[in-house]
Structures are given as C-alpha cells and as structure tokens.
Design a protein around this nucleic acid. Structure first.
Lengths: 202, 202
DNA sequence: CGTGAGTTTGACCAGATGGTCAAATCAAGA
DNA sequence: TCTTGATTTGACCATCTGGTCAAACTCACG
C-alpha cells in the first residue's frame, strides 16, 4: 500500500485510472458482477498492482461512491431559496437531466446500489441525503406557502424529479429499444419541462 | 430432469417454490449476485435437487422473467382505445402504482436486469415491448389529435409513468430513508394523480 | 406387496475470484 | 552513480460457485 505522504505522480495517475475503470465496470455489472481482474485490466494494471493502491474490491467501490455522492447531489445543493421559484426548480431539473445524459455511468452506479437495498451506502442516505432533502423541501414548502408554486407534497416532488430524469440513464436500454434511432433527450427535455411548468403553476 | 409429461404434484410444488425463491433472491441481489445454493435453500431444496428441476441458474432466471413479463405489461395491455381517455390513463397509472406497492420484487427484478443493459431480455424489449408500446402510443396520439388530452410526446408520456411509479419499488430504500415513517404510497398516489390530471388536461 | 418411474442427495469437479507475498524492477534525490 | 523507497509482477492460495453423477430413496399404481 502506498504510504500516507503526499501522493506521487504515479499514484495520482494510477488511482485515477482505477477509479475510472471501476466506474465503468461497477456501473455496468453491479458490485458482485464486477471482478477485480476486469477493473485492473481496464485500468491497464495487473491485479496485484491494483491491490497495491486499494486494499480490496470493497474499498474501491466505497471510494467511488463517496467520491461521487457530492457530484451527484450538487445540483440540489444549488437550489437557491432567494431565486425565482419556478426558474430555480426548472434549472435543477435541467441539470439533473443533463447529468443523466452526460454521466449515465454515475447514475447507474447509484441505481445498482439502490435497487439492491443500498447495502453499502445506507448510512449516507439516512444522514447526508436526508438532511439535504429536508433542507430543500423546506424551501419548496415556503414557496408553496407564498403561493409562488402549486401546493404539492414536497418530498414526492423531489422523488418525481429524480425518477423522471434518472430513468433515461438507468433504463437507457429500454428507452432506446422503444425509441429506435430517436435521441431520447431530444424529446425528454421539452416533455419534462412542459410537465413541470404545468404541474408547478399555481 | 423431469419428463415432459403432465407435471406431477411434486413437480408443481417444487417448481413453484423454486420460482418464488428465485424471485426473492434475484430481485434482491441481481443475476450475478444470486447463488444457486441460496435459491435452493430458500426453496427448501438441496442444490442438486433444484438443478433436477431447472437445468441451470440461467434457466431459472429466464423462466422467471418470461413468466413475469406478461404480468408486468398487463396494465398497459388493458389501456382501451374506446374508454374515456383521461380515465383510461389514470387507471393505468393507478394500476402501475399498485404494482409497485404489491409486487416490488418483480419491479426490482426487471430493474436489475435493465440497469445492467438487459443482457438476457434485450430481444423481448425490442420485440414484444416495443410492439405493445407502439400500439398504445398510437391510441394516445389519436386522443391528442381529437383534443381529448393535451398534446405531448406519447413515448415520453409512457416513460414518465413507468419512471414515476416504479421509482417507489426500485428505489424503495432511498424513498424510505427520506420519508422516515411516512408510508410512501400514501403520498405518492395523490401526487401522481394530480400530476397527470394537470399534465393531460388540454 | 412389487416394481419402475420419479425424486433426492452426498461427494465431487473445474473454473472463477478475491486476495497474498516475496522477489524483481523502477524512479528520483543525494 | 548509488541508494532507498516506490512500484510491479508471477506464482500461489483458499474459497466460492455452477454444475455433474451415481447411488439411494420414495411414490403411485397394478
């Protein structure tokens, strides 16, 4: 295992390569379905070499998830109580949809984990995620109280945004099987935009 | 392997027990994460005994999926061109949401498969599912042409229904982590109902 | 009962997989 | 250049896992 000092040039490069490869493999096959060998090969390393940088398969997975959770939640974090309600929410939705398009691996990484009961990130959900969501639903509720947007169950409003946007990344195969050549996001963006404009208009 | 004749009492019982156990295990751990031993134990059989009824792990999975696909698509099948548009669609949505509540294992079984690229049911998606969806989107389009419901991209309308309803089964842990003790479906039903009434009203 | 088909299982196997380790190789500063 | 710590690897191991098989057992029915 590399020492605890400042990481060398090689350490930086290899750690990054490993996490990149792990993202590919874990998101495509789930934790159990991924093999250390596969990740190592994709990162251009031998298996023992990979295990020189991370002590175990589990450690790679954990590092990936915790490293990406912040990225994943950033758009919600940005929801600003002082902004225009409708524009803030629509901007959030747009960013989430962009993330489904541009970061589908990240989306599927979390989807894999969640579908199987989140055995490895359960704590983060009940703490970090819940805290953030509660904070933001408070803003939504305030906007509803002020009559700026329609009154709805704020938690389910958030869930609906996650569901609608992440669907395109997580169930990409299904979407493409049905749409054929049509670009999913071409139609999804105006559809979802219209949906929330209608829904949120008081 | 049991002969091809009419199944005996024992065969019926054991095949059913195996499929029930497999549904539990595959939906909770995915194909790769499930072990034959685990399924056998949960079905109350020894591993070789289980393999007397199904030739392989893959065969159990295939039998499960193809057996459940019909159940899964039944609600969409029922969408009736001659019914009242708004009521037909809302009834479909309600049935889908009930299925998420009552058949979460089935939902997660498909979710696991889809998230990982549907390696084992890709053909069904491009054939059976696409055919059914195209048939039903034709009805939706007609309703839109007649001004009975708002004009929207019909495929994305279907996707949105799947996303919103199945989210509660597939990402159950996340939903419950955020809602705490609150029953997810209690709030989901009126939320989704409101959403589609607003969205579909011309 | 007896018998043949249907059912069950202990023992076993081959390949995959996560992980270890000592030895070899490499890189960078003194 | 030399040395020392960082990096890399081939060989190896224990365990897990899907699957096989022959032998034993059970059941239904004549």
């Amino acid at each position: 295992m590399p020492k605890d000092r400042a990481p060398t040039r090689i350490q930086k490069k290899n750690r990054a390569a490993i996490l990149e490869a792990a993202l590919n493999v874990f998101s495509a096959h789930g934790f159990r379905g991924a093999t250390v060998d596969q990740i190592a090969t994709e990162a251009g390393l031998s298996k023992p070499n990979l295990l020189y940088y991370f002590p175990s398969k589990e450690a790679i997975h954990t590092a990936l998830l915790s490293g990406l959770l912040e990225t994943w939640l950033a758009p919600l974090h940005d929801l600003d109580a002082d902004g225009d309600p409708m524009e803030e929410i629509l901007a959030y939705i747009r960013r989430k949809l962009e993330m489904s398009r541009d970061l589908p691996r990240e989306s599927r990484l979390f989807a894999n984990e969640l579908v199987q009961g989140a055995p490895r990130i359960h704590a983060s959900l009940s703490n970090d995620l819940k805290t953030l969501v509660d904070e933001k639903t408070a803003i939504l509720t305030q906007w509803m109280d002020e009559g700026k947007i329609a009154r709805l169950h704020p938690h389910h409003l958030i869930f609906s945004i996650w569901a609608l946007t992440q669907h395109y990344a997580d169930f990409d195969v299904q979407v493409r099987a049905i749409l054929g050549d049509e670009d999913p996001f071409e139609g999804a963006e105006p559809f979802i935009d219209t949906l929330y404009r209608k829904l949120l208009t008081p």
